[in-house]
């Protein structure tokens, strides 16, 4: 469904992606792991057109993402949960969740959009009284849930999760992981998740890809990751300071 071929991206002298090749099959949950600053988020952003790669091609259902005629229709297929939720400060929670449903090709009447927003909030474990609050009035975990509700509000075919559990306590991280797994299963969506939290990986992933040195170092089913026989993967999943991945102390 989503294919990245030989994708390169640099920021000045920093060559973040040096030829990424990755295929994400329809209806599967792929998790990209890798150290901080290895370009995991950039991978997702290239698919959405938020970052333009210098080389390589990215296709969704065989269509080059840089040549999509109707950008609105193309983006309507995606939902995304950002690392810090990226909720719009000036809008109440329900309008954040229903943002896509209140404008553009998916526009619904206001009452219907609010109803859907409240239903999605309930789906992620938030009560309707949260709907009229502003994002700044919510805790980090609640903001993540609202971000998740926004990502699924229009029932997209493809959902991206950028570090869904970063900054959360272990219990809340577990709740978010379970929610993602449940939602993905019931919606049948294709998902890509960025994380370096191995608990998330084991909960969410069907397949795992490890990004290191600007390339996909290893990819395979999550069940195979412990027997990957790759020193980089081994060091990463076991959180060891010693190994081929350089660490700064």
């Amino acid at each position: 469904m989503i294919t990245l071929s030989d994708v390169h991206k640099s920021f000045g002298d920093n060559h973040v992606l040096r030829g990424v090749d990755l295929h994400v099959a329809r209806g599967t949950s792929t998790v990209i792991i890798g150290g901080s600053g290895t370009g995991k988020s950039i991978c997702i952003k290239t698919v959405l057109g938020l970052v333009t790669p210098e080389r390589g091609t990215i296709t969704v259902d065989g269509q080059d993402v840089t040549k999509t005629g109707d950008r609105d229709a193309f983006l309507a297929r995606f939902g995304m949960l950002f690392q810090a939720a990226a909720l719009f400060d000036s809008l109440p929670v329900w309008q954040n969740v229903a943002f896509r449903l209140m404008r553009g090709s998916l526009k619904r009447p206001k009452d219907e959009a609010r109803e859907i927003a409240i239903e999605k909030l309930r789906r992620v474990g938030l009560t309707p009284d949260v709907a009229d609050r502003l994002p700044a009035e919510l805790s980090g975990g609640m903001q993540k849930r609202v971000g998740l509700a926004r990502a699924i509000a229009a029932e997209p075919e493809i959902i991206f999760f950028d570090e869904p559990t970063t900054g959360l306590d272990p219990i809340m991280a577990g709740v978010i992981n379970d929610l993602i797994r449940e939602i993905v299963t019931e919606m049948g969506a294709t998902t890509m998740t960025i994380t370096h939290d191995m608990t998330s990986v084991r909960t969410i992933a069907d397949n795992v890809a490890m990004l290191h040195g600007g390339k996909i170092r290893w990819t395979g089913p999550v069940a195979d990751i412990d027997a990957a026989h790759d020193p980089y993967v081994d060091q990463f999943i076991n959180g060891r300071a010693e190994g081929p991945i350089e660490t700064v102390r």
Partner: peptide, 17 residues
């Protein structure tokens, strides 16, 4: 600028806006 730093502008794009 705060919206940019907190990825709210990226979020707008992903929401077809």
């Amino acid at each position: 600028a705060t919206m940019k730093v907190t990825e709210q502008i990226d979020a707008l794009v992903t929401l077809s806006t």
